[in-house]
Amino acid sequence: MDIRFFTEVANDLGESPVWDARRGWLWWVDIRHNRVMAADASGRVQREWTFASAVGSIGLAQHGLVAAFTDHFALIDAQGAVRPLVFPPIGSGAIRFNDGKVDRQGRFLSGTMQHGGQEQPLATVWRLDGSGNAAQVETGLKLSNSICFSPCGRWLYLSDTLEGVIRRYPYDPETGALGAREDFFDCTAIGAPDGATVDTEGRLWVALVTTQRIGCISAQGRLLRSIDVPVPYPSCPAFGGQDMATLYVTTIADSGHKLKSDHPDAGRMLAITGLDARGIAEAIHVPDNHT
């Protein structure tokens, strides 16, 4: 196994890495700076866009990206122009949209995070379909994270970082409806779960943000390995590269809340190879009108 830095960029709040095989680029966001960036496989930055509000998560779209901004879903075209789609009623308790992924059929799911200090869990998860309609699919969270899908697309993974448990839900590929929640893996002994992805074997790779590790969990819910990384606060992993065998990991230098580091490489992205694992190409969100 080899761990190296990817790009010279140091993010404050790096999140939502997505490999774009069409271009051979890795996209990601720096939430605190309202920024979306892309770099090629060598780490050279190819795009850098700054917007009027924070971008919590992104996915691939037909002509660019689909994004969860602070309080709405939007499309971002290849030149960085934004077309708002829908402003879901996420409620006054939510700070903003946070983690998100495109499902195997091209719908985009993203969850919110709530203001600190609130006792009641007010964060929610929303699903954006190709018609630009948003539907609430889960409630009762404080900080939604770890959204990803099994290789077959019939299971949704989701965590509340503050709860420390990765959940699993049956997921209907035709409708996007969720079945009953199952507690899949309790992370409290190994670190708080942040972003996650799956590989071709159905293993879940999760950023353990508070303990500077990446965890690999079997499809049966057993911890297979724990990987120490050289910088604090790993936030989200994504497989990419030409053979989908590189695990890219965003990290945090200053979340603006509780996570802050003076490590000289804090916020830099990592590229991990030699894991004997390959990722699955992300699906593309295609609007019904194909515009």
Rank of each mutant, 00 (worst) to 15 (best):
A192S: 13
V231P: 00
H290N: 14
G274M: 11
D199R: 05
R154N: 10
I166G: 02
G140Y: 08
E15A: 10
A78C: 10
T188Y: 03
P173C: 10
C216E: 12
R154S: 10
D288M: 10
L270M: 06
S92K: 13
P151L: 04
Q242N: 14
T246W: 01
I214F: 10
L26H: 02
I3M: 05
Y157D: 00
W126F: 15
A134M: 07
I58A: 05
M37G: 11
I190E: 02
G56N: 02
G14Q: 04
E8K: 09
W25M: 01
F6L: 05
A74T: 06
S144T: 15
T251Y: 03
I284G: 01
F51K: 01
T197L: 03
P234D: 06
C236D: 07
F185L: 12
W19L: 11
Q242H: 14
E163R: 13
L85F: 07
I217V: 15
G140D: 14
H257T: 15
I217A: 04
V36T: 11
S255L: 06
F69M: 07
T210G: 02
S218W: 10
A180F: 10
A39T: 10
A196M: 06
T7I: 12
M37H: 09
D199V: 11
L270C: 05
E201K: 08
N11W: 06
I284E: 07
G241W: 03
G14D: 09
V165F: 07
R268A: 08
R181A: 15
T161Y: 04
G240E: 07
A207V: 07
A21E: 15
G100M: 11
Y233R: 04
A271V: 06
W27N: 02
Q62F: 01
P230Q: 05
E182K: 13
S255R: 05
W155F: 08
W28G: 00
L224W: 04
I190W: 10
R225F: 01
A189D: 14
G140L: 09
A61Q: 04
I214N: 04
S150D: 03
A192Q: 13
V102Q: 02
Y248A: 08
I90K: 01
F69Q: 05
Y171P: 00
M1S: 09
Q114F: 08
D12Y: 09
H285P: 00
P193H: 12
G179T: 09
A67E: 11
G221Y: 12
R104V: 15
A54Q: 14
T246L: 06
D243F: 00
P84G: 03
A68Y: 11
G24L: 02
A134K: 02
G64N: 02
G241M: 03
T197P: 00
V231A: 04
R225A: 13
E201C: 09
A180G: 02
G14P: 00
V198W: 08
W19E: 08
Q114V: 12
G256H: 12
L128D: 08
N34H: 15
D20H: 03
S53V: 14
V102S: 06
N133M: 12
A219R: 14
L122P: 00
Q79G: 09
Q220Y: 04
V209L: 07
L128Q: 09
V82L: 02
G241P: 00
V137F: 08
T188Q: 14
A135F: 12
P151I: 07
V55C: 07
V29T: 15
P121I: 14
N289Q: 11
C236K: 08
S235D: 01
D254I: 12
H263S: 04
Y248T: 05
S131N: 13
T188N: 12
E174S: 12
D20A: 07
F6A: 02
